[in-house]
Amino acid sequence: MLAFILRRLGQSVLVMLVVAFIAFMVFRYVGDPVVSMVGQDATTGDIEQLRTRLGLNDPFYVQFVRFVGNALQGQFGISYRLQQPVSQLILERLPATIELAFASALIALVFGVVLGIYTALKPRSFSSAVIMTISLVGVSLPTFLIGIGLIYLFAVELKVLPSFGRGQVVQLGWWRTGLLTESGWRSLILPAITLSLFQLTLIMRLVRAEMLEVMRTDYIRFARARGLSQRAINFGHALRNTLVPVITIAGLQLGSVIAFAIITETVFQWPGVGSLFVNSVQVVDVPVMAAYLVFVALVFVVINLIVDILYFIVDPRLRDGARTGR
């Protein structure tokens, strides 16, 4: 057990390093931060001087080693764009993203499971076909278009929901929450729906597929033969067997919801880490970009690690880190 966890931890660290390495290699191609830092009046000499001072003229492995060295001490430097410590910027923005991610994950999970069960229990019905089709429309449009469409409908035409931002926030220690005010909740609705659509479709289809599979198994047939009520079979047996892989996937998806939030946050001016990242990319704010990527990788690695350990505990046969249902 301990050996397994240690090995997976080691692998996780390796993953993080690879992520940081790739990310760093890429930054030099995204553009030149210095040009947007110095302004129009700077001379060629000024630009070159600042570049040297920031260490951007060093070979990239030198920059990388320096970055990893600083990151290990929790130092991500200051943002080129906002001139504030990067770790502070990310921590400030994190609550907004987490609240958005959880809200949309919740929507996706609840509606996904309910609709998935429904379409599985009535596979040939007309309403199932309609639900399956409509759910696809949601993933057939780019997120930015859905977001702007929702804003147009609910904020501009109907004027029932705010068009942008997070509403009024309340400070709880370092955590800035929008969940304690009415305007906060109202502001959360549109972005959360926008962000959830993709996962909702995914979960719904997964539940449906798993449920259909389980319903065909001998075990359910046997239950039916025993004369158990259809209801007891559906919810007592079939659903329970369905939910294990579903929850696994949903957990893994939580990480990607945070990462997916980039576009949604930009469209809704949601003050989370995703919009921070997009703003940073535009001016090549390398310290923020690097820290963000490492942060996202960390979230995934942690979630993966937890899932692996849970699997290990649940099913000791699955040594070697082998996972099923993924």
Partner: peptide, 27 residues
Amino acid sequence: IMRVADVQLSFPAILIALLIFGVARGI
């Protein structure tokens, strides 16, 4: 292979595509 897949899945596809696009532009 699966660790590499983990790395890859650690980022939304859009981000990866963006980064690869950036690298290609540089090369």
